[in-house]
Nucleic acid binder design. Structure first.
Lengths: 127, 127, 127, 127
DNA sequence: GTGGTCTAGACCACG
DNA sequence: GTGGTCTAGACCACC
């Protein structure tokens, strides 16, 4: 799976790396048990600092997406179970986005339509 | 409309102020033409620096939510027209959120349900 | 001649008033000897502060566009004579504008074309 | 490329810095991909505050002249593509300038001549 | 090391 | 009284 970062964007690079791995898992490109490249290797491939990859991996581990083992490196964690508390977290993330959509006079069902299109986009592997 | 900020959180204060004003507009608590408190006044009310409020106001102006009237400070801009390009911007914002929801095995229609609940929440004035 | 100002714009109101009167003179809508409305009157018409109109009138007087008489108010000055030093002043004003046009890859003759179109636009009375 | 500011002038310092960088790009002294000094460094060199440089850089970034690379500071953005909407923006900027030239009885072709001279001046690197 | 954020306080242009 | 500009200095996130 190819990871690309935008150095000029406002999103921190470690967040971009984290996001793309989550997207890869969601798309099924990265399957539970699959090993990720080593921190050094990925850093060299992308052309970023080792510390940055390390931060992304650690974040993913803390979030439960990755298992890290000193010997075998990082691997994708088993499928997560449903977490009812995610709903509230999601809602908090959505508040400013939905508010802006309302201000821009987007219909809420059009919003949901875009959600579904985004879902398909991810499932297709971001193509 | 009351604006409150979380000084301990990781979200920049100027972003919090910006978001809350957008939410206020979406909720209908702030109507087009209505004037906002002056930067000095709001800064004093919230207990933050004038420049921080200034940054939030300038951002909102650049985004088209506010007009900075040279005479009387800031006022809410007229209702925005629908902008077809917002759809793509929205999609980009949603990608990491939807991806995470997929990983957490949330059904896409449950996601849409949360969108609708968030919509109602905002329309109720955040109550 | 109608004068309109944009209160939300970044151009100071007194500058806008000054500019529009200069445009009116250039278009021939305001002829030498013609009297302008009194400061109070114009301020009331536009809905701005008396001081602001005063500043615009004073500026125009200093630039040689207006004659001000305590008794009869302001009137348009006689046609100006050619001023060779204006060329350098003009060049200084154009430097940043031309530089930006170059960066945006506009051909210099297209720039001149826009100058001529702007000329016609003004001569038509801004229509 | 040397940047100099006039502290006594009425043009804001951050605008002067912005303008000179745009002129530098137009003159070819600053090429796409080239890195600019860090905000701290340039501020020290010119003898102004870091925030003032920051404002100039941010403005240039918003205008598309600069990319702010998270790793190495600011660099000149790739050559801009032609933007048809620039024509209208340019026209609006030219209106008061052309109007004043008309009042000062400058021939429109002399105006264009000054435009071309200014163009050459910039292309020569402002010498 | 870089820029981003926040604070604090001053002065000025504008209205 | 309003926002705009500039300065100064601090802390933090990122790399």
């Amino acid at each position: 799976m190819l990871i690309e970062v935008d150095f000029a964007g406002e999103v921190p690079i470690y967040t971009q790396v984290r996001d793309q791995i989550v997207i890869g898992i969601a798309a099924g490109l990265l399957k539970p048990g699959e090993t990720l490249p080593s921190v050094r290797r990925l850093a060299a491939d992308i052309g970023i600092n080792v510390h940055t990859v390390n931060k992304a991996y650690s974040l993913l581990r803390d979030e439960g997406f990755l298992l890290m083992d000193r010997r075998s490196g990082a691997e994708i964690a088993p499928l997560m179970t449903e977490d009812p508390s995610f709903d509230e977290l999601l809602s908090n993330k959505l508040i400013p986005v939905v508010a802006e959509a309302i201000c821009r006079r987007m219909d809420i069902e059009d919003f949901c339509l875009t959600v579904r299109k985004t879902y398909s986009f991810i499932k297709r592997g971001g193509k």
